[in-house]
Design a protein around this nucleic acid. Structure first.
Lengths: 137, 137
DNA sequence: CAGAATCCTGACGGATACTG
DNA sequence: CAGTATCCGTCAGGATTCTG
């Protein structure tokens, strides 16, 4: 579609209809924009996982944050939480259909990231070279 | 491996290759996951904009945050900043090619949001009804 | 194992005032 | 107009401890 960033003839790829309104974008980002949600979703995309499994699969996450993250994902209907009344307790997490659909979006993110991470890194180095102590980072 | 818990025969849509590594996902989210970046990008998808134009187009953003946001986007090579040495000063912001490509990703986010916002809202209400005072929110 | 409850810190971001 | 400079509150998220 020839995006051409100089010849602004491109019709807007994304518009908000209402000029002054946030599209639903922020709504998604408020859910998956946090530090751990996507990583948990990515892991659950592999299959059913138990609590400890998730924690090991997502290195660096604390129990607290894992708990909060899965609770919120559950609340939003993106994953299910199944408690097996055994001892010791066993809790399984699994993506819902909606959760799986989110997976596609995450893939788009990963793809874009893979495609541009180098360019971004270069742009940064360049910028940082030109603006030594800008406070920006 | 057939992930499909419904009938989704899809092989994992997103995998991280290395089992224990963040894909580049967090990298993207660290850039556009903040409060304002996407909104600025969306506005710039419409065309070239000046500072005040941007601020009016993105209601609620402070000068400070607008400044920080455009600086970071510029640093990452997603937008350009052109200063016209006039008086009063005139500064124009414009998406780069890479910035435009990001626009497609943002559209994917908006689409997913539009498709699932209702389902999410319902899931929440339901969850909140079952878990009156869970602290989660 | 799978959490709940607390405490604590840094960073994100808002408000305001000043400048070229 | 297009910023910069400060001050300040909030809160996401880490570390730690306790429990069924």
């Amino acid at each position: 579609m020839s995006v051409g960033h100089t010849g602004v003839t491109t019709e807007p790829v994304v518009t908000c209809g209402d000029e002054h309104e946030d599209c639903g974008i922020r709504e998604v980002l408020d859910r998956i924009g946090d530090k751990w949600s996507v990583l948990v979703v990515v892991e659950l995309a592999q299959g059913v996982r138990r609590f400890r499994q998730l924690q090991r699969a997502v290195p660096g996450i604390s129990q607290r944050m894992l708990t909060l993250t899965v609770r919120r994902l559950e609340r939003d209907g993106l994953i299910t939480r199944t408690v097996h009344p055994t001892v010791p307790p066993q809790v399984e997490y699994e993506l819902t259909t909606m959760g799986h659909s989110l997976t596609h979006l995450v893939k788009a993110l990963a793809d874009w990231s893979a495609d541009h991470r180098d360019a971004i890194a270069r742009a940064r180095q360049e910028w940082d070279a030109v603006h030594p102590d800008s406070g920006i980072r």
